[in-house]
Every structure is written in structure tokens, then in C-alpha cells.
Amino acid sequence: MSLRLAFVVVVSTAVILLGSCQVSPTPPPFATATPSRDTPPSFIQSPTCRGEALSAPILEDTFDIKPPPTPTPTPTVTPTPVLGRVERIATGRFATWYRYVHPKYGFAFYFPPDWKIASEDAHSVSLAAQATGYHLNIGFKAAGETEVSIQRTGVPAGDEVVRGRVRFLGQTLPRYVLVYQGEVIAVLYNRALEVRVDDRIFTLSLDCMTLDCGDGIPPEVQAFADRIVASFEWVEP
């Protein structure tokens, strides 16, 4: 008697639950269906009770998501600086000398055959005097090139003394010498400050480029440097 009553209670409870829930059948899967972007994704429907879903729908479709391509950086192109050219002079007052011509900034100067170009870049040229450690350093730029610095950052220890003047592109520059322990260790034309001539700017100095400058710059080297500075002339750029 008790077993029959328990069975009736269980069956009645199941009927009540089924009556209050609506079970949506799961549509049969296609035998050879393949998900594609043209076919909308199918959902497995789940039973709901009183309009509330018992579980979330399951998305069956899948897509391949690829990362965007890595952009190729554009290389930075550094322009090649315009350098001067050297010509041999056969006649005239500078016969046997060389002539340095800068095609961009439109100037030229002359230098003896035993002086050599030690270094050069877009805004400077350095001449080595007779295979010694003394260099005539020349900086140049256009007046509008305000971002370019050709001004030297300092001078060695010593006393600045005015010793003569020198002509340079129509101007007369004071000639300062730097004296240390009685010896001339540098010649600073216009104190090595910028000299503006028309729309171009220059700096000029004769310097000791070695650690041993105790004997000073020989007078003949100073004289040749003065002649080089005085030989500047304009040329067609």
C-alpha cells in the first residue's frame, strides 16, 4: 500500500512540472552541413519554464580571426653632404698651390701644396699645416641656416692679444693670438667669432690639434694661414 502511494506521488509531480514548462525541441543536425559566412549560426534551444531560459544559447559557428599585418617602417634617408673640390693651379700668383672650391656656398680659397685637407663635412673644412699638428679650421653656413652651429665652444688657457689684421672677402678682420707661457698656441681671426659676409657666415681659426703645443705655432705657419684667409674669393655656386 505504501509503495503504490509513493509511485503515485512521483508520477503526479512529474506531470505538474512538465505542464508548467515548454520544451522546445532541438532541430536535427544536418548530416553534411558546414558552417559558412552565408549560413546564419544555428542555436541549440533549451527548455524554458514560464518564459525564462534555463541555459544560454550555444553558438556553433566559428570564424578565423587573423591579426592585422605589421606595417613596414619607412627608412630615413640621410642626404649626402655637398663637399668642395680641389684644383691644381698652374699659373698666376698662386702657381703650384691648390684651390679649394665649394659649389654650394660659392666660395674658394688657395693653399700651399704641402698643406693637406685633414677633414671635411657639410659645414667645415680643416687644413693640416705641413704635416704638423696645426690646423686651419674653417666653418661656413648660409645666414638662414639658424639650426646649424659653426661656432667653437671654447679656447685653451692663455691670453688673447691683438697682433695685426687680415683681409677676408672685402672685410678687415682683427687677428687675435692666444699666448700661453710666452708661446702662440692659436690664431683667432675675429676672435674666432662668426663673420657674416652678405648671406653667408664663416668662422676661422688656426689651432693646435695635438697635446704637445709647448713650442707654439711657428711664425711661417702663421704667415701661410694668413695668406690662405686673405685668398678667399667668391665663385658662382
Rank of each mutant, 00 (worst) to 15 (best):
R37G: 02
T62F: 02
T34P: 00
R50L: 12
K66F: 01
Q22I: 07
T80K: 14
P71Q: 12
P25M: 10
I44F: 04
S42N: 09
V23L: 05
P57A: 09
P68I: 11
P67G: 08
S46I: 09
D61F: 01
P75S: 11
R37V: 06
L18N: 14
T80L: 15
P73H: 03
R37N: 05
V23R: 14
P81I: 07
R50N: 13
P81E: 05
R50H: 06
E52Y: 10
P40T: 12
P69H: 03
S20I: 12
A33G: 14
S20A: 13
A53I: 07
A56M: 07
P79R: 07
P47W: 09
T72Q: 13
P27S: 14
T32K: 09
D64V: 15
T48S: 09
P27Q: 12
T78W: 03
P29Q: 07
P75V: 07
D61A: 14
P57I: 12
V23P: 00
P47D: 13
E60N: 11
I58Y: 01
D64T: 15
P71A: 11
E60A: 04
A53N: 10
P41F: 11
P67I: 09
P73T: 03
E52K: 14
F43P: 00
T74K: 08
R37S: 13
D61I: 01
E52T: 12
Q22K: 15
Q45G: 01
F43V: 07
Q45F: 01
P47N: 13
K66R: 15
P40K: 10
T76L: 12
E52M: 12
D38M: 13
L18C: 09
P81H: 05
T48D: 00
A53L: 06
T34A: 12
A33N: 06
P41H: 08
D64P: 00
P75F: 04
L17F: 13
P71G: 09
F30N: 11
S46W: 05
T32F: 13
F43W: 02
I58S: 00
S55E: 15
A31E: 15
T48E: 13
C49L: 04
D61T: 07
T80M: 10
S36E: 01
I58N: 01
P73Q: 01
A53W: 01
G51E: 00
P67F: 00
S55F: 14
I58E: 00
D64N: 10
T32A: 10
L18K: 06
P35H: 13
P71T: 11
Q45C: 02
T78Y: 04
P69D: 14
P69M: 04
G51L: 05
E52N: 11
P35S: 15
P69L: 05
P40I: 15
T70R: 08
V23D: 01
P68N: 07
S46C: 05
T72D: 07
T74L: 02
S55M: 13
T70A: 05
F63A: 15
E60V: 05
V23F: 12
T76K: 08
V77W: 03
K66V: 15
I65F: 04
P41W: 09
E52G: 08
D38E: 06
T72Y: 04
P68G: 11
P25E: 12
